[in-house]
Design a protein around this nucleic acid. Sequence first.
DNA 1: CCTAACACGC
DNA 2: GACGTACGTGTTAGGA
Length: 876
Amino acid sequence: MTKKLVLIDGNSIAYRAFFALPLLNNDKGIHTNAVYGFTMMLMRIVEEEKPSHLLVAFDAGKTTFRHETFKEYKGGRQKTPPELSEQFPFIRELLDAYNIKRYELANYEADDIIGTLSAQAEQEGLDVKVISGDKDLLQLVSDRVTVDITRKGITEVDSYTPAFIDEKYGITPEQIVDMKGLMGDSSDNIPGVPGVGEKTALKLLKEHHTVEQLLESIDQVSGKKLKEKLEEHKELAIMSKKLATIFREAPIEVKVEDVSYEGHDNEKLAALFKELGFNSLLDKLGYEAEEIHEEFEDMNYEIITSVREEMLTTHSALIVELFDENYHHADIIGFGIANETGNYFIPADTALESEVFLSWISDEQMKKVVFNAKKSAVSLKWKGINLKGVYHDVMIASYIINPSDSNDDLATIAKQKGYSQVQSDEAVYGKGAKRKVPEQDILAEHVVRKALAAYHLENQLTDELKANEQYKLFEDLEMPLSLVLGDMEHQGVKIDMNRLNTMGTEIGERLDEIEKNIYRLAGESFNINSPKQLGVVLFETLNLPVIKKTKTGYSTSADVLEQLADKHEIISEILHYRQLGKLQSTYIEGLKKVVYEETNKVHTRFTQTLTQTGRLSSTDPNLQNIPIRLEEGKKIRQAFVPSQQDWVIFAADYSQIELRVLAHIANDEKLIEAFQNDLDIHTKTAMDVFHVEQDEVTSNMRRQAKAVNFGIVYGISDYGLSQSLGITRKEAGKFIERYLESFPGVKEYMDDIIRDAKEKGYVTTLLQRRRYLPEITSRNFNLRSFAERTAMNTPIQGTAADIIKKAMIHMAERLKEEGLQSKLLLQVHDELIFEAPKEEIETLKKLVPEVMEQALELKVPLKVDYSYGDTWFDAK
DNA sequence: CCTAACACGC
DNA sequence: GACGTACGTGTTAGGA
């Protein structure tokens, strides 16, 4: 069989694929459409053409020898979109995985490489197929050379043979350059003869065959105008033909025999497809994601009845398996261990009675990889066991690499990295009412598989962290933070139950009263807590004007009710009822439900791996949203008390941390100066935005400036600002515009960060926390706008989160170093809450602000305010 | 058992 | 100019 050489015009195909396909991205926000299209094309070629030899040629750089002839060659071209540029490294990886040679040569275009190699191949008797999106290549067509030009999409092509060219244009392949010489080529900025298009060029060539012959016999051309043009632009025609002519003797170092194609590397290709998220192509490969790490399938493990010293090594993966979702006081049901000696399941009783195991688990020198270090440590701490030596938490690593992945289930992370043998906890235990511990062998296998996955994932995740320059963030910030958080959760916060009960009774009575009043005003009884029923009463029975609708009916939200306040007496009653009802159900009853009876404490759980910005969240109970704004709600804080007699609650909060971070990141002169002089930032903003002196700033101006600052910090839109200020969207837009004019450094930052995010697909904080924003290149205005605001906001909020996390670690260290009894209890985004013996108050007054303010050095000082008192309420 | 609507904090 | 608009957690109602 005749050998076949396939030559691919790499740049051309990449461009075609990019523009033919929607802008796909993978889970990390990297665009993949061009790579995908390229892959489809390669698959088709390999399948249909069965090439014995294969090469992809690329353009080398901006200038080629053609620029010496005509410096405007390819002038006026649009810059390659960054969304495409970022894909070229993957295309190269793709070709390497396919074991396909790629080649580029300085000063020459891909066309010349293809032309030269096809000439060689023809001589050696090979069949040649050229693949491109560029019809220039048609000049290479011969009896042995076919050129495929992409038609629509990427896999549909027209195959040009000499016969097809004759049929389509009525000329020979050699005459293609003459055609280009006459008609030019706008995409390459080849001029051609003005006034001559395809039709005229073809007509002239049928008669005169070549540009040269034509120019020698211009007098025979019919048409006066045309004659003149040809005469006038002789030089241009000659030059254009030269530009369009592919150079078939380029000094390339590759020979046909160097580019033989032996087939692709299955493993490499599968790994790349996995990385890019080409799951459908994985199937096509005859590969499944699961098979990447198939050594996993026949895992051996042992259920331990008596712990042996030699199975507990200094580098082990450890799974502490709990049944309860809440790990405080949860039952440990077993331990999974994987290391170089084997895989083991140790039932809880066996482990907890084993001296060998207990000393290993508390040995700092025995290094452990875990999944969810805090959960493991806290659950053991409740049993009086100190988990030590944890140096890698797979959950945290995965969160750092990409916070948008669901990191709370090891199975998900494992699967994403190619280990599909791990089952999700939900699949093993069931959910809801059906949740139960399975048979021991099923449990054991599940736990051991998790351990084994963690054992294998460590290296992979570490590599990724290092590649992203996030290892420091992982090792020095989040890992130590998990220990600090675990201690805080375990310590808990004491609740004054009497206070809570008294408040509950009082609020209950007031609710009864308001309820009666509402029924009287409505003229009927109904469930005030039901928005549906309330809507009927307000908008049908009482006929109040409908301001807003939700998708299920009338909106009865607070902002709607406020607008109806002067229309009917019932409105203010309902608002008050809602306010008290919220206090009662969430903060009195809700809190009481989670107080531990023996100690009267609440033990929240901080989720360290959830938010997209790097903030923490808090659950069961959520202690980050205890009321403070309204006086009635704030009183709830009277129930949060120190755990010991003669202790106090000590609270310290950062003043304007986000805006200070903004001043630093944006490097805005005016903002930096304002903070260096410790000005009231909202007043200062009002002065700049409204162009007034300090004593001319009215309280209304300050309020509006404050809302704008709020908007900057939280990344709200003009619509959001208009809502919070009760003004039109247009006016809100003006405010934002004026703000940005007033702070040009901020404006520049906003523009830069969006550009940066579009280019890289993610934004980072000062400490290298990442957030991927795949939608920033979306054609959907909403999605794109949202991503843009996120790009502006995340570095600000995320850096603030970085700072307080660092402060927490330092704080814990200092308290220990100084031998203080004071305990860190809570973190509420920009504040830290402690409990402290009275004797230590004076020490804390100095120590806490010092540590917090020095957590990270910025171009502006960080400022911390503090207060203390007998309850959280009094620490104001 | 899930979703929608609402409200609390930063 | 439309589009539907910070992130979390928890409660209640109401329909599958």
